[in-house]
Nucleic acid binder design. Structure first.
Lengths: 299, 299
DNA sequence: TGACCTGATATCCCTGGGCGTATGGACCGA
DNA sequence: TCGGTCCATACGCCCAGGGATATCAGGTCA
């Protein structure tokens, strides 16, 4: 591609004149006097090297050269105006692409509402949704592989990231129906000291893992972990199979599975936080716009 | 389509920088110093309203806005350069469209060589070929329906048209094989005085018609015209059917048809002229270029 | 810490081009 | 022949913008 030789204002004047086929009318439509328009066309013709219009007493007509140049000029200007509009839309956060990582457990709670609200407010934004656990989300944020993370128990030592809590929820005990404590509406955490535990591996979500361990410690025991599982769905299945019990955020109740029950815990003060995470220095307006989707709808 | 807001030089600088991703290198490629390039990009970003590049110590990267604008700018510049080249090609006569009218009898003589020569010299020129008799060619030339005419016996009273003779040829007699004069190698025109004549109607080619009549008159008789035909092919068929004889340009020998013979005429000085015709005020360089196709090839 | 690379900023110059008004010249119709 | 229309030309104004040089500022690396 070569360096451009044709100034755009002249091309625009050319387009208008090619439509009007009348110098006076075209000049009026351009909002200028007629002589300047003659000059513009003249200069353009000089640059092209050939006349673009026949000036006959009967009227103005395009020459073959003009007919050849016209569609190219139209396409070029249309591309530019469209491209500029699209670029501005992206710049202002009305359009573009946003890559979101989310913890699987949120697929049943905050994620649906978030997507719905955001898509409604910004229909021209394409959302790339990636299910991933907490630690990979943080890594992906640092590597610019995702722009937004949705995770539990945000870490505190991430100076390059910002977090905002969007939901807190208490823990519940997940027990197999056959468990001795299942008949109770509320379970004393200390009573689970003797039950084997199913837990997520520490690596995929250290904060949540440590928080659960901490709950048990506060209740006076160290849980005996007999099985690890990454997915809550899997964990419920393991509980159902009688491999152990677990503690989970209350939204796990959305999982419907026969053979397990969810029970309130006492003491019940501890809540798990769901947070949205983003790069602190990310200037992408879509990130800011996405955060507003957690605010109450102004309408 | 709206009035353009983005100057092309800035867009071009944008493209180069988007490829190089390095201000110094891009400036060098543009043949300017680095500060002016920074200014160009700065001005462009001001007009777009958003940054197009991330300037990080690690290097220069496109922002999402820049990525959105880039393809549009590429298309626009490509369209313009291609359109400009095409327009100049048309203007210089290296490309375009030329509408040619030709008399049917020339399809066997000058036309094939002309087309071959011209297409070889100007492969990007599209030729519209229309078979039409002389009078419609002249009308079509005046109405700008064709740009070039190929006809016999150009008229003299056409101030708006120019003509150039490209071929002259003698007349021959066309006789049915059974005609009493058919055995002779040469036919005295006066000997045809008693034969009925097949002739083209005067309206489709007055000059040629009158010339044939004039030949007969000079030989001392007025031909008895019993049949008219527009196409030479048809005329030969009528001669073969015994409806008459005719006089025709020598190139009619290209028509191969059993049952007729072509014979030299005496006296034989009169020749018919094939001419190319064009509008005298036609500035289309293709017209001039086509005329050169009749010149001997310089190579 | 200093050399060096990067890009940004400041300042100045100059020209192209976009605009206006005034005027000229060709053509047309009354 | 005389206005009227239409486009071109001439001339002057003004400024956006493209260019250069000099300098600054931040980061990297030896």
């Amino acid at each position: 591609m070569d360096r451009p030789e044709l100034p755009l204002p002249q091309l625009y004047a050319f387009l208008v004149l090619a439509e009007e086929l009348h110098f006076g009318d075209a000049a009026a439509r351009l909002g200028i006097a007629q002589p300047p328009l003659s000059q513009q066309i003249r200069r353009l013709e000089d640059k092209v090297g050939h006349p673009l219009f026949h000036r006959t007493p009967a009227g103005v007509t395009l020459t073959p050269v003009g007919r050849e140049l016209l569609p190219a000029a139209q396409r070029a200007l249309a591309d530019l105006t469209a491209g500029l509009a699209a670029a501005r839309a992206v710049g202002s956060g009305r359009a573009g692409r946003l890559r979101i990582g989310f913890a699987a457990s949120l697929a049943l709670t905050v994620l649906p509402g978030l997507l719905q609200t955001f898509r409604h407010r910004y229909p021209d934004v394409h959302l790339d949704i990636h299910e991933m656990t907490s630690a990979p989300q943080l890594a992906a944020l640092h590597e610019q592989a995702i722009d937004i993370g949705l995770l539990r128990e945000p870490p505190v030592d991430e100076p390059a990231l910002d977090f905002r809590t969007v939901l807190t929820e208490p823990f519940v005990a997940v027990l197999p129906t056959a468990h001795p404590l299942a008949p109770q509406r509320t379970v004393h955490l200390a009573d689970l000291a003797d039950s084997p535990f199913v837990l997520l591996p520490r690596g995929v979500g250290p904060q949540l893992h440590d928080q659960i361990i901490g709950l048990c410690t506060a209740a006076g025991f160290a849980p005996r972990i007999t099985q690890h599982a990454v997915e809550w769905q899997t964990m419920c299945a393991l509980v159902k199979a009688g491999l152990g019990v677990t503690l989970a955020p209350a939204s796990i109740r959305h999982i419907r599975l026969d053979g397990i029950v969810f029970r309130r815990l006492t003491p019940g003060g501890t809540r798990t936080r769901v947070a949205v995470a983003w790069r602190r220095n990310d200037r992408n307006p879509l990130v800011a716009n996405l955060l507003t989707a957690f605010d109450p709808d102004p309408s």
